[in-house]
Design a protein around this nucleic acid. Structure first.
Lengths: 234, 234
DNA sequence: CCAAAAGTGTTGCATTTACACCCATGA
DNA sequence: TCATGGGTGTAAATGCAACACTTTTGG
C-alpha cells in the first residue's frame, strides 16, 4: 500500500466554548492567549490535537487543563476550516461547547491563563473566528435547551425552582410566568424535591430540588416543552 | 513570529452523505472506492481538503464531482477524528450531508465511481466509519425535518401532497393521516397550489404544488409541527 | 360502473396560556 | 408588622388528533 503522499496535512486544534451560570447571568470562561500570534488578547481555551488523541479526548484535556474538571458536559459544536483563520499557519479548529457548574470551578488552577468569567452579553474582542464560534454556541444552546433538559448541567446538585427559572430566563433573555414554569418543569418528572430549603436569597426560603438522574438520562432525547412559544423561536 | 513547529499536521478529508427520494423510498448515493485501502468496496463520496479551500468548498467540489450538481443543500454534520479511522494514515473527516432532487441527478457523470442509489434501509457494508456517519446523518435528518421544512430539498420543483406525505412517511418510517397532514402542511403557507395535476399515479390526479421560496427562506428557522407527536420522538 | 386514489370538516380532548392571591419569615 | 420572595389553582383559548364520506376518472 502507498501512503497518500501528495496530500496536504493541516494543523488541527480544538477550542472550547465554556458556559457557566452564577445564579444571575450566563457566563463564558475566556483566557488571555499565552503565545503569538495575538498573545495577550482574549481567546477561547484551545489546543492542538495530538497524534495520540481524538477530538473528544483533546477537548477533555484542554478543558481539564483550564478548569481542573472531569466529567463535564461536552459536545462537538462545529468544525471551522477557513484557510486564513489563523494568520500564522492554516489551522482548522473543532469547536466544542461545555456546560459546567460554575461552583465547581476552582480559580487557582487557571491563574496562569488569566482566565475570567465574562457575561455572554458583554464578551470582549476575541481573536480569530472565536466570536463566530461563540455566536454559534449560544444559538445551539438556545436551540437545544428548548427541546432537551440540558441546562441542568449548569446547576449544582441541589438547586431551587427560582434558580432554575432565572437560568432559563438568562438563556432566553426573557421572563416566564413562575406558575406555568414550575408546573411544566415539575410535570417532566425530572426533579426530586428535597426537605431542605435554600434560605440565603429569601426569608421564606425555597425548596431545593435534585435532578432525577435516571429519568434525566432516559428522557434526555425526548422533546420537552418548557419554553413558551418555542415554535416561534427564531 | 514562529511557526507552530512542533505540532502534528493531519490529513483532512470531507465525506458526503447524499440523500435522495425517488417517490417511494429514501436513498443514499454510494460509490465504489477507487483506490487503496479498501479499493472496490462501498463508500461515501469523499476527498481530501485542499490547501486552497475551506470545508464547505471541499464538500461542494466533491459533490459536484460525483453528481454534476451545484446549488445543492449541504450542511456540515460532524467532524470525525478517531486516530485509526483510516488504517493507512490518520485522516480526519468533516462529514456533510446533502439533500438532492434525485431527478436532477445524471447517472452518466458518476459512472467512473460506479455510484448507486441504495435504500437507506438496506445499505451495504461500508468502509471505515462510514456506517456511523450514515447513522448520524439519518438521525439528524429526522431531527431537523421534524422542526424545519428541510425535506422540500429532496423534491422536484413541482410535487403533489401525496408525494410530500410519502416522503415524510419514508423519513419517519411510519404513516400519517392525510387529512391532518395536508391541513398542517398547507397552514404553513409554504405551498402554492398549481393549476395542473399530476395524472400518472392516479385516475383523479393530484394537484401540483410549488414551494413558496420567499416564505421558505423566511420561515426556515421557525419551528414547524408537521410530525404528529414529534415531542415523543426518540 | 367500479376500483383507486384525491380531497375535504367536525368534534372531543389535551395542552397551554393568562392571571391573583396567600404564605412564611427575617429584619 | 411589614416587606420580600415563594408557592399554588382555575378558567378560557388554542392546538391537535381521531375519524368517514364524497369526488373524479381511467379502464
Amino acid at each position: 500500500m502507498n501512503k497518500y503522499t501528495k496530500q496536504t496535512r493541516i494543523l488541527t486544534a480544538v477550542d472550547c466554548i465554556i458556559f457557566g451560570f452564577d445564579g444571575t447571568e450566563l457566563k463564558l470562561l475566556l483566557i488571555k492567549r499565552a503565545f503569538e500570534p495575538q498573545k495577550g488578547n482574549w481567546s477561547l481555551m484551545g489546543g492542538f490535537v495530538q497524534a495520540t488523541e481524538n477530538f473528544d479526548e483533546a477537548a477533555k484535556r484542554v478543558l481539564k487543563q483550564l478548569t481542573g474538571l472531569d466529567g463535564v458536559y461536552l459536545e462537538q459544536l462545529y468544525a471551522f476550516g477557513a484557510i486564513d483563520r489563523d494568520p500564522l499557519e492554516r489551522t482548522i479548529s473543532i469547536a466544542y461547547f461545555a456546560l459546567i457548574d460554575i461552583h465547581k470551578y476552582q480559580t487557582q488552577i487557571s491563574e496562569e491563563y488569566h482566565a475570567e468569567w465574562m457575561p455572554v452579553k458583554q464578551v470582549p474582542a476575541l481573536i480569530f473566528d472565536h466570536p463566530q464560534m461563540i455566536k454559534m454556541a449560544k444559538a445551539k444552546l438556545q436551540y437545544k435547551a428548548a427541546l432537551h433538559p440540558i441546562l441542568f448541567e449548569l446547576l449544582p446538585d441541589k438547586f431551587t425552582l427560582p434558580q432554575l427559572q432565572s437560568l432559563y430566563e438568562g438563556v432566553y433573555d426573557t421572563e416566564f410566568d413562575k406558575r406555568n414554569f414550575s408546573r411544566k418543569v415539575l410535570s417532566t418528572g425530572l426533579l426530586i424535591k428535597q426537605k431542605e430549603k435554600e434560605k440565603a436569597s429569601s426569608k421564606k426560603g425555597a425548596f431545593f430540588y435534585k435532578l432525577n438522574k435516571r429519568s434525566y438520562k432516559a428522557n434526555f432525547q425526548a422533546f420537552l416543552n418548557i419554553i413558551p412559544n418555542a415554535h416561534k423561536l427564531k
